[in-house]
Design a protein around this nucleic acid. Sequence first.
RNA 1: CGGGCUAUAGCGCAGCUUGGUAGCGCGUUCGUCUGGGGGACGAAAGGUCGUAGGUUCAAAUCCUGCUAGCCCGACCA
Length: 446
Amino acid sequence: MRLTRYFLPIIKETPSEAQIVSHRLMLRAGMIRQASAGIYSWLPLGYKVLRKIEEIVHQEQQAAGSIPVLMPTIQSADLWRQSGRYDDYGPEMLRIKDRHDRDMLYGPTNEEQITEIAAAGIRSYRDLPALLYHIQWKFRDEVRPRFGVMRGREFLMKDGYSFDIDKEGARHSYNRMFVSYLRTFERMGLKAVPMKADSGPIGGDMTHEFLILAETGESAVFLDRDLADLTLGDREIDWEDAAQLEGIVDQWTSSYARTDETHDAAVFEAQVSEERRVTARGIEVGHIFYFGSKYSEPLNAMVANAEGERVPLESGSYGIGVSRLAGAIIEASHDDNGIIWPEAVAPFEVAVINLKQGDEEADAACEDLYTKLTARGFDVIYDDRNERAGSKFATIDLIGVPWKLIVGPRGLKNGVVEMACRKTGEKQELAPDDAINRLADRFGRT
RNA sequence: CGGGCUAUAGCGCAGCUUGGUAGCGCGUUCGUCUGGGGGACGAAAGGUCGUAGGUUCAAAUCCUGCUAGCCCGACCA
């Protein structure tokens, strides 16, 4: 993409309404524009990031055996009356009426809908397990939306649901999602830590929140350093192997990790030696829980088991705050100059900066780099504006492009361009083609 | 939902106390000089002062209602 042809309304000064860094940077980088309280338009740059996040979630969900569907945003009140939540949900649910005066609602979540779908489509235990998910906009009429996309009223969420014949099956499904979440966040360059969540009225230990560690996080977290250092890395996962999944989940849940909600200082101190105690802040980006037959019973989602008895489906639900992640990643990764995108979600992977627009050689070298990088499959932004160098650096750093190829007459005289890393600030002079090859190696592009 | 605050040009703000021609910085447009980390000079465009009403010869300014947005707290992917 040539910057002169792109739509990138960046702003120099910080809008006054934005209090936290991700919100400020998203506005300044021209990623979003507020439509009303807690409701945002996603401008090209923001939309690109959102799509990349979404794509990673899609890939990891499907790798783990979950199947994509798409349920509507507008739902009928009927199902919610059956589950009893139409009254329970309260004013956070946006209620509307259609022209026939029927009660409708803008879905805050989809348990009822998916359970209805499962009930209609699953006839026997032989159809199980079933894991379905979608990525769809939700609306929760928050009393006080704030922090930009981190707590909007309208937000994009991946919500998945599992259906099994018994608790053992449900645990396997739960573990699939647990491991899938570890992979998903790791791929996005995030350090996400699963923490035991408040299980509420259902009880049990099958509920975890995934928090990414960021100084500006909304909740205090307490964890064992061993856990903070754990990574999945390249390990092969056999999603059908319940024992392997259980082993990984055990590995991640045996160390202490809790948010301020469930934190118990005495247990923390007893279980974790002093030098391993980490107190930090985190942002919740995922939440998984097992809820048994909470919805299948009232919605009559029954299925025949091997003995021919009709039993309620065993379910769990698994959420990832997709739009929130866009903000959360920035909270976890930025500096004074702007955003520092992890490569996997960067709106552009590499920027070509022409230091002297209009200089014949510089223009030609940039065009060549731009063409070649694009041909190699890179998402590249070419800053071809007739601006001074400083302005280009400021813009490219603000929008967080991981790699810069800096092209100017001086370097070209020696046959080199400069390759600079946004994250580390490291710079290196290379022949243009070597720079391309270096990037191709790094990104695994042939 | 309790408490606090704001609304004037795309963004950040001043003007309001004491009513009288709507201003500044950034950004934008044009020109010239420039050109390796938000450059300089010159010129220009851009505002029903959130909205409805009231007081007044006269309202951005005073009064009343309404609306929208923000912050702290309680609640949440």
